[in-house]
Amino acid sequence: MNRLKTCASVLAAGLLTVSLPAMAHHSFAMFDQTKTTDRKGVTVVQFQWANPHVYVVVKSGTETFALECNSPSNMKQAGWKFNTLKAGDKIDISYFPLRNGKPGGALKVATLGGGKKLDAW
């Protein structure tokens, strides 16, 4: 009986360890991926290159909001670098808006000043 309990405990601990990364990663259900919003000439306020997701904070008119991107490794594969954007850069963006209607969303594509388009999703 003790051996069975020990085996069950080890199995449970192993399953918990394996499932932790999945639990830490949130759902993208908060973004409406059936719609895109486009804004031209937004100003980059901050570009945060960090795990688990890259973020871009932009200002459009008087509104400042954050856009979530993919992971740094996926962004790198799409042509992004940690210094692709700098505060003050003007870019055009296309993003999936938040379902709750608040400002922000998930960045889909950024068009840089020179016309270069980079996928972020």
Rank of each mutant, 00 (worst) to 15 (best):
K5F: 11
K5L: 14
K5C: 12
T6K: 13
C7R: 00
C7T: 06
C7P: 00
C7G: 03
S9Y: 10
V10T: 03
L11M: 09
A12C: 14
A12K: 07
G14H: 06
L15R: 14
L15F: 15
L15S: 13
L16H: 12
L16I: 10
L16Q: 12
T17F: 15
T17Q: 07
V18N: 01
V18D: 03
S19V: 00
P21F: 14
P21W: 15
P21L: 13
A22T: 05
A22S: 08
M23F: 11
M23Y: 12
A24N: 12
A24F: 15
H25N: 14
H25R: 13
H25S: 13
S27P: 08
F28L: 12
A29S: 06
A29L: 08
M30R: 06
F31N: 02
F31W: 01
D32P: 03
Q33G: 11
Q33F: 08
T34W: 04
T34K: 10
T36C: 10
T37D: 08
R39H: 07
R39F: 04
R39W: 07
K40D: 13
G41N: 13
V42N: 02
V42A: 02
V42I: 11
V42Q: 02
V42T: 04
T43E: 08
T43K: 05
T43N: 04
T43D: 06
V44Q: 02
V44E: 04
V44S: 01
V44C: 00
V44M: 04
V45A: 02
V45P: 01
Q46V: 00
F47T: 04
F47R: 06
A50C: 09
A50R: 13
N51V: 12
N51E: 13
P52S: 08
P52T: 10
P52V: 06
P52A: 05
H53C: 08
H53W: 05
Y55D: 04
V56T: 06
V57S: 04
V57A: 03
S60D: 14
S60R: 03
S60Q: 07
G61R: 07
G61A: 12
T62F: 14
E63A: 14
E63R: 12
T64F: 09
F65W: 15
F65M: 11
A66W: 03
A66M: 09
A66E: 10
L67C: 06
L67H: 02
E68D: 15
C69N: 02
S71D: 09
S71V: 12
P72N: 08
S73I: 11
N74V: 02
N74L: 00
M75P: 01
M75L: 14
K76M: 13
K76S: 15
A78I: 09
G79C: 11
G79E: 02
W80T: 01
